[in-house]
Lab assay of single mutants.
Amino acid sequence: EEAIQNFKALLSDMVRSSDVSWSDTRRTLRKDHRWESGSLLEREEKEKLFNEHIEALTK
């Protein structure tokens, strides 16, 4: 649960536009030290959280 919250915070800070792809964003996020705290999450979970974040940005 904490890993999810940390990853959501990372997305909020780093992803402000809804027209970015997961693969491009992932490359950028990996450069942030907080990426490692999400290592407990599966890749699919990270992508799902990313997609939810993008959906929220479009509303």
Rank of each mutant, 00 (worst) to 15 (best):
E1G: 07
E2I: 09
E2K: 11
E2D: 02
A3V: 08
A3T: 06
I4T: 10
I4K: 12
Q5G: 11
Q5K: 15
K8D: 00
K8V: 04
A9N: 13
L10D: 06
L11M: 01
L11H: 01
S12W: 05
S12L: 12
D13R: 02
D13S: 06
D13W: 00
D13V: 03
D13F: 02
M14L: 14
V15I: 09
S17P: 01
S17H: 14
S18L: 06
S18Q: 10
S18G: 09
D19I: 00
V20W: 03
S21D: 09
W22T: 02
W22D: 03
S23D: 14
S23Q: 15
S23I: 10
S23L: 07
S23V: 11
S23P: 08
D24C: 04
D24L: 04
T25N: 01
R26K: 14
L29H: 03
L29K: 01
L29C: 04
R30M: 15
K31N: 13
H33S: 13
H33A: 08
R34P: 00
R34C: 02
R34F: 00
W35Q: 02
W35R: 07
S37D: 14
S37V: 10
S37H: 14
G38V: 14
G38K: 08
G38L: 13
G38A: 15
S39D: 12
S39E: 12
L40D: 13
L40G: 14
L40W: 08
L40I: 12
L40H: 12
L41F: 00
L41R: 04
E42Q: 14
E42R: 15
E44I: 06
E44P: 09
K46E: 13
E47Y: 01
E47C: 00
K48W: 03
K48C: 06
K48Q: 11
L49K: 01
F50L: 00
N51L: 08
E52Q: 10
E52S: 06
H53A: 01
H53K: 01
I54H: 04
E55P: 02
A56M: 12
T58P: 06
K59Y: 04
K59F: 03
